[in-house]
Design a protein around this nucleic acid. Structure first.
Length: 503
RNA sequence: GGUCGGAUGGCCGAGCGGUUAGGCAGAGGUCUGCAAAACCUUGUACAGCGGUUCGAAUCCGCUUCCGACCUCCA
């Protein structure tokens, strides 16, 4: 697809708080970094929402013709439980609890994460670096920060000097905070803050106590890297000192992303990111879905329906569709009613895809209906305009439903497909599935590996049923339909014969 | 307490100065052997109070609720 044919992409930059035209530093190449999970336990649906949102970003950028290098990290060290610089490492804690090697924990939950991403049809990133694989680079960055005077060593730990940094550069711009407010607002009296010159400072290298099982040698003694550091290091390594898009959940905006900016600027003197994108939270009854609040669903619970808050199971594509019906930057509230509505809507979209695919056209380019043709063209164009407007999937989906109405009408001969000229029909036939499958990343869940055999079988069965119906043998025809129903196959009788779909 | 963001019809969810969002559910109709699907028609909306404007769900102010971040979370 030629980029020039599509509307100019705009992205809401949460740094400038404005929508901006997307101009890659090095078009057609685009560098995108998304903060991945900390693999100390199962990912939950809130995580999934963020990664699905960026999956669509990735897919759409590619559709527009960009060559995207998509980097999404795996955090496997440095992320602490509890207070920012004094808690236990999350991975280490889990390892202790499960009596496993830290790297076993990492492997286990990384595998689980990948499984979930596959189930929700998210494309794998181009590079998926792990923090423990970049200890050397992290040490080097700590050294650069020290060399430039923005860090200080105390007792084998190295801290980032936020106040010093703020004298030269604005700290807090991304999250809209002022350092004075932060200084006065920071909770005092936290244990073990004595090492830091200021409560705002954060660890970039942390001394490992005797009991700490994750530890590496460094110029400052045995320790491990601070959590914020890995993203700065790995984005720089794979995307350069300045790159195009950095994404992540809203809850990472402060302090994580703010610290990333400070680290990169302090180490290399450059603002690392052109466009910051933040996805909003998935909520349950209006409250953020979060592991610590015990209101989070695991993907397999959602699929099976095996959770006190769930009335039934919801398929991965129902969920994906549900999430894309809201904008990534809005909170999305999770409820059975909403999921059930999404299930039907998703089904409707899939039906339209199938109908469009089977459409027979016998039109004449010298004799077509201008109005009808314009209407289709306009809807298709609008869908792309919406996608280009900060990835507005909800609005694009609304156009898809408008088109579905048209497609169904053609299918049922309530409108005549031959009223379209061939260009428009081709455009529709190309764009509709492209948006549904390639860009939104939906899949037809009724399609199976045995699709061909299934199609043949169903053709045969429906053919037999047709013979019965022609003879007004309703007993036989209803029996076929009823038994198929019990197999979750729905038969639909239309003017042009019967069709079937998975119920 | 500080900073920021929300409140849209039965539910979800777009829109962010003038034009139908859309989906689901509801009502009526068409089609059908019946059913399903599909198509057509259709209702109740923008938290409250003021203000700006020819015109506001959309801008401004105040009020009331809710949430996020400031501790780990996508």
């Amino acid at each position: 697809m030629d980029t020039n044919n599509k509307p100019q992409l705009t992205i809401y930059n949460s740094h400038s708080r404005k929508k901006e035209a997307f101009k890659p530093l090095n078009s057609p190449y685009v560098g995108m970094y998304v903060c991945g999970p900390t693999v100390y336990s199962d990912v939950h649906l809130g995580n999934v929402r963020t990664f699905i949102a960026f999956d669509v970003v990735y897919r759409y950028l590619q559709y527009l013709g960009y060559k995207v290098r998509y980097v999404r990290n795996i955090t496997d060290v440095g992320h602490l439980v509890g207070d920012i610089d004094e808690g236990e490492d999350k991975i280490a804690k889990r390892a202790r609890l499960e009596n496993l090697e830290p790297m076993e924990i990492v492997q286990k939950y990384t595998n689980g994460f990948h499984d979930v991403m596959r189930i929700y049809n998210a494309i794998s990133p181009s590079i998926e670096p792990q923090a423990t694989g970049h200890i050397v680079e992290q040490i080097e960055m700590v050294q650069r920060i020290l060399d430039n005077g923005y860090g200080y060593e105390v007792n084998g730990s190295v801290y980032f000097d936020v106040v010093k940094y703020n004298e030269e550069y604005p700290y807090g711009e991304l999250s809209g905070r002022k350092i004075e407010d932060l200084l006065s607002g920071t909770r005092e009296e936290l244990e073990g803050q004595q090492e830091k010159k200021n409560p705002l400072d954060f660890a970039i290298w942390k001394k490992a106590d005797k009991g700490h099982i994750m530890r590496w040698n460094s110029p400052w003694g045995v320790g491990f890297p601070g959590w914020h550091l890995e993203c700065s290091v790995m984005s720089t390594k794979y995307l350069g000192e300045t790159f195009d898009i950095h994404g992540g959940g809203m809850d990472l905006r402060f302090p994580h992303h703010e610290c990333e900016i400070a680290q990169s600027v302090a180490a290399d003197g450059k603002a690392p990111v052109q466009y910051w994108m933040h996805t909003n939270m998935l909520t349950v009854n209006g409250t953020k879905m979060s592991k610590s609040l015990n209101n989070s669903f695991l993907p397999h619970e959602l699929i099976s329906g095996d959770h006190p808050l769930l009335e039934q199971g919801y398929s991965p594509m129902t969920t994906r569709f549900f999430m894309l019906q809201s904008h990534y930057a809005s909170t999305l509230d999770f409820s059975n009613e909403a999921l059930q509505a999404a299930e039907k809507g998703y089904q409707r979209l899939m039906n339209a895809c199938k109908a469009l695919d089977k459409m027979h056209y016998d039109g004449d380019d010298n004799n077509y209906n201008q109005e009808e043709t314009d209407a289709i063209n306009q809807l298709v164009d609008q869908a792309f305009e919406h996608l280009s407007d900060d990835f507005s999937t909800p609005q694009a989906i609304a156009r898809l439903f408008d088109l579905s109405k048209k497609i169904n009408s053609y299918n049922e001969k309530k409108l005549d497909i031959n009223n379209l000229n061939s260009n428009t029909l081709n455009k529709l036939k190309e764009a509709f599935p492209a948006i549904v499958f390639d860009i939104l990343g939906l899949q037809d869940e009724s399609a199976s590996d045995n699709a061909e055999a299934m199609d043949g079988l169903m053709d045969l069965i429906l053919d037999i049923r047709k013979e019965a119906r022609d003879k007004k043998d309703w007993d036989t025809s209803d029996k076929i339909r009823n038994v198929l129903n019990t197999l979750n196959i729905v038969v639909k009788d239309g003017k042009e014969g019967s069709s079937w779909g998975m119920g």
